[in-house]
Simulated scan of single mutants.
Amino acid sequence: MTVKTIAITALLGSACAAQAGGIDRSGQSIQALFESGRYAEFSLGSVSPDTSGTAVAGLGGFGSGDMTSSFLQLGAAYKADINDRLSYAIIYDQPFGADVDYPTGTGYFAAGSMADLDAHAITGLMRYKFENNFSVHGGIRVQSIEATAAVPFIPSGPYNVSGERDIGIGYVAGVAYERPDIALRVALTYNSSIKHDVQTNETSALGANSSITQIETPQSVNLDFQTGVAQDTLLFGGIRWVEWSEFDITPADYQVVSGGASLVSYDNDVFSYSLGVGRRLSETWSVSASVGYEKSNGGFASNLGPTDGSKSLALAAVYTKDNMKVTTGIRYINIGDAQTSIDGGATAASNFKDNHAVAIGIKVGYTF
């Protein structure tokens, strides 16, 4: 096994992805597009967050209990060459999601609140290689979203909302540079925002009403790199920027009963960083380790997403046999401390500290 082969097998992100910024989950990876020959993969991850906070004394000082549910993360991809220069890939992922469920009976002011957001995307990509080691790639992404939420602590009374599944279309565009002799690849990829017009059903002090809520999942940029640094040793990493400051979910009645607040919104964009090293141990085994970082931005977080930044450590092992490779990985995420508010950001309502998540995953790839 050469360092070039390690460059193909050591990247573990899609095997156990867990993103903290906003409701980011998959990282929208397109790594399958760079595999050699005809290739197919399937990945399954299980993420178990443990997120709890304590209300300020003025709201009783009660603990929230664990308000995040475990979830599964699925992914799949197929890639093939059309000729020596042109190839294509079809990638399925779950780019965004939320599973929030505050337990009842705790005395916490947000007890009984819940939020669920489910997103699926299929991306069709094509890649063209030039003679100077550069290539360009791009394509279309079809995405569906569906969401529900319940907020019982609004002063005007309990609020419930459900949004029916809606499909939107966006695009992907990028460029890459490769040096196969040293396993070098640098890829820059832009993911467009995707607009959704969601049929929304609300129940609140205003009664039961239906309307259209416009939701736009954010644009993002991924910069991924890898390079051989010694025989059988690979350095890899990436930077991801997501424009979360433009993301907002504000159903019509919620804006009225909440006094103009958004159901979900974020004040800042998010940069995510990762850096790792992969090492070949034998003809069949290689291992990798990587660290991840997201800066804490401060300010108040949403009660439906009380996190701010993160640090993570991931370990992976890759078994290669003939045309098959199996990647298994585990990632520990230290979730950043956050404060929430219920009065539009005037004062703190709760403090979330010392929270974490554990993600485990497996990815099976086959070249044929």
Rank of each mutant, 00 (worst) to 15 (best):
K311M: 12
R279F: 07
A15F: 04
M67W: 00
Q143F: 03
A55W: 04
G345D: 02
L33F: 05
G45R: 02
I140E: 05
A77G: 13
M324V: 11
S286M: 14
I154L: 15
S70F: 03
V242K: 03
A17P: 14
F71L: 12
M324G: 10
M324I: 04
S274H: 07
L184G: 09
S192D: 07
S48R: 13
S36Y: 03
S69Q: 15
D232S: 13
R185V: 05
Y319I: 13
A289Q: 10
Y266P: 08
G107C: 09
S290N: 15
A314Q: 15
V257S: 11
T2D: 14
A55G: 15
A301I: 11
G105A: 13
N334T: 07
P155N: 09
V264P: 00
I90A: 13
F153G: 08
S350Y: 01
V56M: 05
V221K: 01
D24L: 10
E283M: 11
H196Y: 05
S64A: 06
S113C: 10
S302E: 04
P306C: 09
T68S: 13
I30V: 15
Q231N: 12
L11W: 01
T217W: 00
G336I: 01
A230P: 10
P251H: 06
M324Y: 10
Y159N: 12
K325L: 10
E246W: 01
R25H: 04
N303D: 06
A89K: 03
V264E: 00
I194P: 00
F225D: 06
N303V: 15
G174W: 00
T51W: 00
H356D: 15
Y273L: 12
N83G: 09
Q19C: 01
F368I: 06
A316V: 10
A261V: 09
S286E: 13
T106H: 11
M1F: 07
D118I: 08
L117G: 14
A338F: 01
D337W: 07
A314V: 04
I342N: 14
A15D: 09
F130E: 02
T213I: 07
Q339E: 10
A32R: 03
L125W: 01
D50W: 02
G21T: 10
G276D: 05
A110D: 03
G305F: 00
A252G: 11
D99G: 05
D269T: 02
S274M: 09
Y108T: 09
K4I: 04
V100R: 01
S87K: 02
V264I: 15
K353E: 11
A176T: 12
T54S: 14
M126S: 14
R38H: 13
T9Y: 05
I360A: 15
D116F: 07
G112Y: 02
I169N: 07
F352D: 01
A338N: 06
D24F: 11
D50V: 06
F71E: 11
D322G: 14
G61F: 10
